[in-house]
Design a binder for these strands. Structure first.
Lengths: 149, 149
DNA sequence: AACGATTTAATCGCGCACGATATAACTTCA
DNA sequence: TGAAGTTATATCGTGCGCGATTAAATCGTT
């Protein structure tokens, strides 16, 4: 027969295993998607987080750094250097808001706006690579949005 | 009436929006979970990737660096420095395999093994924080495992 | 007007994550 | 046996992601 201590240990093993499986599944899927995008984005000279930032701007530009931080759920400590690199690449412009000099306004340059067409190809190639039915992706998206909000 | 060009643009907007939503949902959920773990893991002096590495070892130790890389889907360029930090913290030991000097064997120290009990608390607190029914989590895990394999 | 509180970005340090490359150990096979 | 090829880990440079801190602008209250 098994002792209470053994049962407690089994429980511990089980909880830790589930934790590992769930956390790792998320962690690893995010890494895999980044790796999947890399060869596609190399053609645009963008990293994956930079691509996400551009997607935000292609939906609506200009925006302040703070608004982009809200949209991407990132701190200025992450965003500021990333945006400076996009500026260096000539895709965006950074300027202080005259109405409130604390704010920095991010706007697409012509080059940044023009990249939108190539980005469309990237997105389509990505969906091909994923090879997953659209409803499954939409379902996954909704479940992820609900997680740990 | 709308022109063909307008329709193509609408399609582009839609594809990019879906891409943004799906990719961002995954990216952002992974970031959120890491942030959720941080205060819990601070008590153990572990980062989130270090915690994942310890979970792997608590399931089965010793393992080689390569085996851990397979389990965590990480390159040696990521794993080696991480493992050196765990070694510095006294939680694991690194030693060359006498049968094949190319391999490095990672084994838990007594301190590393002992941390397992505290880790159990962390995992349980995490599930409390998540506040999500277990079946939903299991379902999410399965969907993530299927994604971009 | 003035001074403390708040808001907005930026800066810094640390630890990933990975591609490219290096190095050493093992294997193969001529 | 020994040279060529393969495998296992390590090193390096770049770009995140974030907590802690800083600096400057704005706001609120008196």
């Amino acid at each position: 027969m098994t002792s209470d201590a053994d049962k407690a240990l089994d429980k511990a093993v089980e909880v830790l295993r589930l934790d590992r499986q769930l956390c790792f599944a998320l962690y690893s899927a995010a890494n895999r998607v980044t790796r999947l995008y890399r060869p596609l984005l190399d053609a645009l000279g963008l990293t994956y987080p930079q691509y996400l930032a551009m997607l935000v701007l292609w939906e609506h530009s200009p925006r302040t750094v703070g608004e982009m931080g809200q949209a991407l759920d990132l701190e200025s400590s992450t965003l500021t250097p990333l945006l400076k690199r996009l500026e260096g690449a000539g895709l965006i412009a950074r300027s202080r808001d005259p109405d409130d000099e604390r704010r920095v306004i991010i706007s697409l340059t012509d080059a940044g706006d023009a990249m939108r067409d190539q980005a469309l190809d990237v997105a389509e190639q990505f969906f091909c690579k994923l090879d997953t039915p659209l409803p499954e992706l939409v379902d996954l998206r909704e479940r992820l949005k609900r997680l740990a909000v």
